[in-house]
Amino acid sequence: MKVQGLQSEMQAMMLEATNSRPAASGHTVGADFGNMLNNAINNVNGLQKSSGDLQMRFDRGDENVSLSDVMIARNKSSVAFEATIQVRNKLVDAYKELMNMPV
C-alpha cells in the first residue's frame, strides 16, 4: 500500500465521519465505528504480513525483492502499528475518564 493511498483513505474516513447524515440510532453509530476500527486493524495486520513475507522472500534470495523494498514495507508496518497503539491508548484514556466521572 502506498503512503498516498493510506493518506487518501484516512481523508475519506474523515469526510465520512464528518458527514452530516443523521444517525438512526446509537447502535448504528457504534456499528460504523466498530467496522471502521476493525478495518483499520485488518489493514495494519495486512501490512505486517506483507512486510514479513517480503522479508522472508529476501532472506531466501528472491531476486525480485530488494533490500529497500523490505525496509520500506517494514517501516510502513511499524508506523501503522505505532499509530494503532496510540489510538488504543487514547481510547483507554477516554474510557478511564468516563468511568471517573461522577454520576
Rank of each mutant, 00 (worst) to 15 (best):
D69K: 06
M56P: 00
D53T: 05
S78K: 15
N64T: 13
I72G: 00
V70G: 04
D69N: 07
G52Y: 04
S66I: 07
E82N: 15
R57N: 00
M71C: 04
R57Y: 02
A73P: 10
L67F: 09
D62R: 02
F81D: 09
S66R: 03
Q86R: 13
A83Q: 12
V65E: 03
G52H: 07
E63R: 08
R57T: 03
V65C: 03
R74C: 00
S78L: 13
L67R: 12
D59M: 09
E82T: 14
E63F: 05
G52V: 02
S66V: 06
D69A: 05
V65F: 00
L54V: 07
Q55L: 01
D59P: 06
D53R: 04
N75R: 14
G52T: 08
D62I: 05
K76Q: 15
E82Y: 11
E82P: 08
S68K: 15
S66A: 08
S77G: 10
E82M: 11
S77P: 15
M71G: 01
M56I: 04
R74Q: 12
K76S: 12
L54K: 08
A83D: 13
D69L: 00
D69M: 07
M56R: 10
N64P: 04
L67W: 05
V70K: 01
N75I: 07
S77M: 14
E82I: 09
M71V: 10
D69C: 01
E63P: 15
A73H: 13
G52N: 08
A83L: 14
D53N: 07
R57S: 05
R57K: 13
V79C: 05
D69H: 03
D62S: 05
E63N: 10
G52I: 00
L67G: 04
V70N: 03
R60D: 11
V65K: 02
N64V: 03
A73V: 10
G52P: 03
I72H: 06
S68I: 13
L54A: 05
L54C: 07
S78A: 10
V65Q: 06
T84N: 12
Q86W: 07
L67S: 09
K76V: 00
G52E: 00
F58I: 05
A80I: 13
N75M: 14
R57G: 04
V79D: 09
R60E: 11
S66C: 02
A83Y: 04
N64S: 12
V79W: 09
A83K: 08
Q55E: 08
Q55I: 02
A80R: 11
R60M: 15
V79K: 11
M71L: 13
L54N: 04
Q55R: 01
M71S: 08
S77Y: 06
Q55W: 01
E63V: 14
S78I: 08
K76F: 07
M56S: 09
I85N: 14
A83P: 14
E82H: 13
T84V: 13
L67Y: 01
G61P: 04
A80D: 10
F58N: 03
V79M: 12
I85K: 15
I72K: 06
